[in-house]
Design a protein around this nucleic acid. Structure first.
Lengths: 210, 210
DNA sequence: ATCACAATACCCCTTTCGGGGGATCTCAAA
DNA sequence: TTTGAGATCCCCCGAAAGGGGTATTGTGAT
């Protein structure tokens, strides 16, 4: 039985690229190529897949959310996260949400094939480029609470901060006291481990919270 | 004579993808696939190419700089910029620096082929997704002075700012007075039209200056 | 039912920012 | 050769940010 792969990435070139790559692999069939998380769910409604190669950065429904929904609804579908960035934060979040693998777009076709075979066997696969970090991540995941959540309100504050508004102005926009905004910002700073708002915005953008 | 294409993108998957795509096109030959701007220059030192498919976001030497250097040194090489983002700021900068084409990674293989053929004919090609914006860009490019430069020193300050350092700390790192840092930051704020450092970092990241 | 956490608001205090100037000096381009 | 831009330094001043607390709600998970 062939391995049925569903591709999800918002970039057409990448989809085309993957299709071409998989054409040369005997027992791997690309059964679908979609452009966002919503389409993943729509596709799985009516079709079957063994592996989902899922880009993290997508519009409409992002990778993390899609991964969560897919693994909950279709536990048999193995999800391999695909990211441009070798950031532990992503890896952690995806693994937490049920991903079986994590690859970088920088990885070779061979590595991707290996990953697909591994996850269909029920194994986990992480890009060799990240292997060395894995131990520390596992360790951190258990001991430390590095995977933090950003609440709805904090997200709003973050967004307005990135647009250059002051606490005062944000307070007015959200109909809350500027003290509260200060508190939210304070929490954000400590969650992202940023020394000030400039670094906060950078890290938030990097980690995909903006 | 075949069209010799040099690929430059830091993501292996994309390179593989392009190679696969071009394999099915008779008269297009991929003569090289490199991972950063420096490698582009190194490659062109010893080899020839007709078209350079150049990703804008690359480490070591970014797309804009690479484009500038390549078009200056090898005027016969047609550069097609490749970006994930449909931001006019990028388009403008690349065109200013001699790019002959601009594609989105979201574009289809067909569109890419079309673009390659167009630029080898000496034409210009812009992703159809951006066609409608072109007029306004041309207009802006003439009337307004939207394209500003960020000096070397300002870039350094920007980088350190994004890492959460204060003017004082940046001054120490760069062996200059914090007054000077303040001045640089002030200039950056006005250039990027940002109300504060948070917005500055966001805009700098968006426009690819970080 | 308890516990954790999000969301709200307030206090104090110090440091940093941000906006407005002005002033050299150098180097390259017009 | 003049002009402009980059880089450097300095002033003032008020507004914000940042760090440390405390505290009250409400809600959702265990």
């Amino acid at each position: 039985m062939d391995i049925r792969v569903l591709l999800a990435d918002d970039h057409q070139v990448l989809l085309d690229g993957f299709v071409s790559i998989f054409e040369s692999i005997e027992d791997v069939k690309v059964v679908g190529a979609v452009k966002n998380g919503q389409e993943v769910l729509d596709f799985l409604e009516e079709n079957q897949a063994d592996v989902l190669l899922l880009d993290i950065n997508m519009p409409v429904l992002n990778g993390v959310e899609t991964c969560k929904k897919v693994t909950r609804k279709y536990p048999d579908v193995k999800v391999i996260a695909l990211s441009m960035y070798d950031q532990q934060s992503y890896l952690k979040r995806m693994v937490q949400h049920g991903a079986s693998g994590y690859l970088l777009k920088d990885d070779s076709a061979e590595e991707i094939e290996k990953a697909i075979r591994a996850v269909t066997q029920g194994e986990r696969y992480v890009s060799s480029q990240l292997q060395d970090r894995l131990t520390s991540i596992d360790f951190l995941a258990r001991k430390n609470k590095t995977v933090f959540t950003v609440s709805k309100r904090e997200k709003e504050v973050l967004e307005l901060l990135s647009q250059g508004f002051t606490d005062q102005e944000i307070g007015e926009k959200l109909f809350i006291s500027f003290h509260t905004v200060k508190t939210h910002r304070k929490h954000l700073l400590s969650k992202f481990n940023a020394k000030n708002s400039a670094e906060l915005i950078k890290k938030a953008l990097e980690k995909g919270h903006l």
